Computed example of a mutant assay.
Amino acid sequence: MDDRRVRQMREEDLPVVERVSERVFLEPGEQGRPLRIIQAWIEWARHLLTVDPAGCWVSVGAGGINGFAFSQNRGGFWYLTTYGVLPEARGTGIGRQLLDAVLAHAGDRPGMFNSTTHPGATRVYRQARFSLLPEMQMVGTVDRSTIPVIKGINDGDENDFDWMNELDTSLRGAGHGPDHTFLLNSQRLVVAGRRGYAYIDHHNRATLLAATDPATAQDLLWEALASSSGDTLVDFITSANDWAIDVGLTARLNLATEGYLAVRGMPAPAPYLPGGRFL
């Protein structure tokens, strides 16, 4: 008897889903997540489950939860933030069932997500009518002699959210809404007047960046790079955002291919660097 099923996620599932996520995404030989990272992951997942529970799903087999998908509707825009199936459950159709569930939640909204290069996954995404746009990342230590003098960048706060949501809407079809509140509680927000913003995490990396024009976007990215020490990372760069490549190469970072930005019903946003967790 086939006892596999897909159901909506519940809050009591979150600790188990975190452990499944760890198994799905950790590289062989890599150590498990430290406690503070586990706690931060569960708080982030709880935020998504609270804001849009109908977008959060798990797959369940004889051994318990073996897959998950977190997606969110924000007005007229949909995003898939993370999705995975345990190795022993792959090839059983569960991954496709999870994707069908979150796509049903999306309805006819335009949307996007960051995709790996896994052949099976990319095949499913194309069958679901997503365009796969190659992404790049830049890694290395910033050559501090290359950092220009940047003016007009200031710390932001919740009073900036209205115009930030308007900018989000112009770039991707809807504001980040409650995601801005969550991000501000854990990351530094910098703004360039009302022309752009960026969140900078505890590693001093830009995790979400949006601007009205490439020059402003470059200033915001330079602000993040100037805050870094040691190795840093700029990722999720599409060809529509080659302004970021110019900054990274000038800073002596190394350019490499990464994965894909999967988009449906919309072009790649620009000037824009999507976050890993809040696209």
Results as ranks from 00 to 15, higher is better:
120 G>F: 03
121 A>F: 00
121 A>G: 11
121 A>N: 07
121 A>D: 02
123 R>S: 09
124 V>Y: 08
124 V>D: 05
124 V>A: 13
125 Y>K: 04
125 Y>N: 06
127 Q>Y: 07
130 F>K: 00
130 F>N: 00
131 S>N: 09
132 L>R: 03
133 L>C: 10
133 L>M: 11
134 P>R: 10
134 P>E: 10
134 P>N: 12
135 E>F: 00
136 M>A: 09
137 Q>L: 10
137 Q>T: 02
137 Q>P: 00
138 M>G: 09
138 M>V: 06
139 V>L: 15
140 G>M: 05
140 G>F: 02
141 T>M: 04
141 T>K: 15
146 T>Y: 00
146 T>Q: 13
146 T>E: 14
146 T>M: 13
147 I>V: 13
147 I>N: 05
147 I>G: 04
147 I>Y: 09
148 P>K: 04
148 P>S: 13
150 I>H: 07
151 K>P: 03
153 I>V: 13
153 I>L: 11
154 N>R: 13
156 G>P: 01
156 G>D: 06
157 D>Q: 08
157 D>A: 07
158 E>D: 12
160 D>K: 03
160 D>A: 12
160 D>N: 13
161 F>R: 11
162 D>T: 14
163 W>Q: 10
165 N>V: 07
167 L>D: 00
167 L>R: 03
170 S>C: 13
172 R>F: 06
172 R>K: 13
173 G>N: 03
173 G>Q: 03
175 G>W: 07
177 G>R: 07
177 G>S: 08
177 G>D: 13
179 D>G: 08
180 H>S: 01
180 H>N: 15
181 T>G: 14
183 L>W: 00
183 L>K: 07
183 L>F: 04
183 L>S: 15
184 L>A: 11
184 L>R: 03
185 N>R: 14
187 Q>Y: 05
188 R>K: 15
188 R>N: 08
188 R>V: 10
189 L>Y: 02
189 L>H: 09
190 V>C: 09
190 V>F: 02
191 V>L: 00
192 A>N: 14
192 A>M: 09
193 G>S: 10
194 R>S: 07
196 G>P: 06
196 G>A: 05
198 A>G: 03
199 Y>L: 00
201 D>K: 04
201 D>N: 14
201 D>H: 02
202 H>A: 10
203 H>G: 10
203 H>Y: 13
204 N>F: 03
205 R>S: 04
206 A>W: 00
206 A>N: 04
206 A>G: 13
206 A>V: 14
207 T>C: 08
207 T>Q: 05
208 L>T: 04
208 L>A: 08
208 L>C: 08
209 L>N: 02
209 L>S: 08
210 A>G: 09
210 A>H: 05
211 A>R: 10
212 T>K: 15
213 D>H: 05
213 D>E: 15
